[in-house]
Every structure is written in structure tokens, then in C-alpha cells.
């Protein structure tokens, strides 16, 4: 790998001061993605700032919900009693991702910053606008079974890989970010972005900003939530399609549905059309099917991923039915 400078910091201010001095520096959390990218020469930081010593590891109840420390490990988060009880969809999503070994290392903040698993992005011999802006997109006409069906452009058809973030999207989480000037809260829907004119950017985080926590507000669908992940094998595979769903019910009537999809877009895809359809409707199989139709009607598949439309419908229906039945 490319030689780099390594330093460890002890508090957020120190981390931010250091990274502001070097636009080619990167923070190191669990390293489960950054180190892979460095080995493949996709990420080429000349300085690594290890933030592993920062005390951003706490998972704690707050007045409005729960706060997940940016450096708390995925395993600890998924198994935390409060998460299991009040945010089971988050626990399930985390446990559906990666492997136990990776989850033991991976941090919550780092999970949000995972880069796409698009094979063309990972291969430095290939054109890729995300890795090398302006070089083109080899996946558009290439092997794109895993790629996007929503929100893609001819410049980038990559999908965002995290499972955890799909649940956080449905949970209306927000991301707490610190820089030298200020602390800001980024609502989850604005954190990850579609490729647009800048496919090289995955999210709205600026250089010099440090994620300190993920805030998850209280919800009233813990007992009626589900995470469905469809993949090519039963563990250690990225989602072809995944769905996080929560239903706020009044008897058999859906007051609100919160639904996000993974494996279909450059960001967690909030299924707004399905949500809108289900609002104040009866929780019936027919309505679930219509909601799924409403959402997937807008999909634009690529050459090798037409199946994701049907799979998306089935996954939405399955998640809604599972959520309605109740899971606790």
C-alpha cells in the first residue's frame, strides 16, 4: 500500500485540528472498509488519524430516544438491551450484515461511511466516476446485477451497501457531526446523497467533520417492525434487496408506515410512495401489494437487475406482513 503517516489522537478537537491540516488525511475507526480500500489502492490517504481512543463509544438513552456513540462497535450496538427492546429493526439489520468478526471491529460511524461494493469501483484498472471523476462508468453497460434501480445516473449506478443504515433511515435517525466551527445535526435523509453531478461523493459530510453520534428518536412501532434481507447466501453477502419497515397501527389501520430499502440505490431508499399509499389504510395483503406496486413502479432497472423489481415487491410485502404480525 501507499506509504502514509500514522498518528493517534485522544480527543475530538485534536482529531479535527489534525485533519484540517491535510486534505489527503483520513480518520481510522474500525478499519473494516478503509484498510480494504487502501490495499486495493482505491483509497490513497497519505495520513491516517486513528480515532480509536476517542470516548465516543457510549450508547445511552436520551430524552428523545437513544444516542449511539460513533465509535461504539456494531456488535455492541446490535446486542444492547435498549436497542433490542425499543429498536429491534436496527438490531436485526446490523446482525444481517457482514460477519461476526467484522461487526466486532466495525464502528457505527464507520458503518455509515462504507463505500459502495461496485466491482468497477474496486478495480483501479476500470473507469469509475466515483473513484476517478470524469473517467466514466464501466458498470452502466457492464455486469450490473448488484446495481441500482432507483436514482442512478449514467455517471454512476452504484448502490450503497450498509444494512444498519437502512434501519436508521426507517427510524428517522440523524447524524451528529462536529467540525472546528460548529456542531451540526444532519437528518438521515440528507446524510447520504444520490450520485447527481458528484458521484464521487457518497454523503454530505465535509472534510474536517467528525461524526460523534447517531441520534435515533423514539418510535411507536418497535413491536411492528421488520428487516428483510434477500441475498445470494445466508450470511456474509450484500443485499440484493433489503427492506426495513415499521408500522404504527391503530388496530388494523396503519397510521403511518416507515419503510426504507437497501440494495436499490446510491443511498438508503426511503419508500415514500409506499408509505404514502399505506397511510390510514387497512393493514391487508391487498394494500401491502398495492403499496409495493406503487413504490416499484418508479424503478428503472439496468441490463442485469430487472429481477430487483419483482424481488423488491416481494421483499416489501414480506417485510410489511412480518411487521404487521408483530415480532416480540
Amino acid at each position: 500500500m501507499k506509504p502514509f503517516k500514522f498518528s493517534a489522537v485522544n480527543n475530538p478537537a485534536e482529531a479535527i485540528t489534525l485533519i484540517n491540516k491535510n486534505t489527503d488525511a483520513a480518520f481510522l475507526g474500525g478499519g473494516t472498509n478503509l484498510l480494504d480500500l487502501m490495499k486495493e489502492h482505491v483509497a490513497l490517504p497519505n495520513e491516517i488519524i486513528d480515532i480509536g481512543n476517542l470516548s465516543l463509544k457510549e450508547i445511552k438513552a436520551t430524552a428523545s430516544g437513544i444516542s449511539l456513540g460513533a465509535l461504539a462497535k456494531n456488535t455492541e450496538t446490535a446486542n444492547h438491551p435498549l436497542i433490542r427492546k425499543n429498536f429491534p429493526v436496527l438490531s436485526k439489520a446490523i446482525l444481517a450484515g457482514a460477519s461476526a468478526q467484522i461487526r466486532n471491529m466495525a464502528t457505527n460511524g464507520g458503518n455509515l461511511l462504507q463505500r459502495t461494493r461496485c466491482s468497477y469501483f474496486y478495480d483501479i484498472a476500470m473507469p469509475c466516476n466515483k473513484r476517478n471523476p470524469g473517467s466514466g462508468c464501466a458498470a452502466l453497460e457492464g455486469f450490473n446485477r448488484m446495481h441500482a434501480i432507483f436514482g442512478w445516473t449514467r455517471d454512476c449506478v452504484a448502490v450503497y451497501p450498509s444494512d444498519m443504515a437502512i434501519a436508521l433511515s426507517a427510524l428517522n435517525a440523524s447524524v451528529k457531526v462536529l467540525s472546528s466551527e460548529r456542531e451540526r445535526i444532519i437528518p438521515f435523509r440528507d446524510f447520504h446523497i444520490l450520485p447527481g453531478a458528484h458521484p464521487e461523493k457518497d454523503n454530505s459530510l465535509q472534510h474536517g467533520e467528525l461524526i460523534t453520534a447517531i441520534e435515533v428518536p423514539k418510535n411507536d412501532f418497535a413491536e411492528h417492525s421488520a428487516y428483510v434481507k434477500i441475498r445470494d447466501r445466508n450470511s456474509y453477502a450484500f443485499a440484493l434487496v433489503s427492506v426495513a419497515a415499521g408500522l404504527t397501527l391503530n388496530g388494523n389501520t396503519i397510521q403511518t408506515a416507515s419503510i426504507a430499502m437497501g440494495g436499490v440505490a446510491h443511498k438508503p431508499w426511503r419508500a415514500l410512495n409506499a408509505e404514502a399509499y399505506l397511510k390510514d389504510k387497512a393493514a391487508t395483503a391487498a394494500n401491502f401489494a398495492k403499496a409495493a406496486e406503487a413504490e416499484m413502479a418508479l424503478a428503472q432497472p439496468l441490463a442485469h437487475n430487472k429481477f430487483k423489481i419483482e424481488m423488491g415487491k416481494k421483499a416489501l410485502i414480506n417485510a410489511l406482513e412480518t411487521a404487521f404480525k408483530g415480532n416480540i
Binding site: S119, Y120, G142, F143, D232, R233, N234, S235
Partner: peptide, 17 residues
């Protein structure tokens, strides 16, 4: 060119399969 040249994406069964 082969495009899934790693054990993450070249799928073989895991225990759960």
C-alpha cells in the same frame, strides 16, 4: 475480465447455508 474476484463476492456456502 472476471468481476467478482474476491471471496466476498465469489459466493461459496457459509455454515448457515
Amino acid at each position: 475480465k472476471y468481476m467478482n474476484t474476491n471471496l466476498g463476492e465469489y459466493h461459496i456456502p457459509v455454515h448457515a447455508d
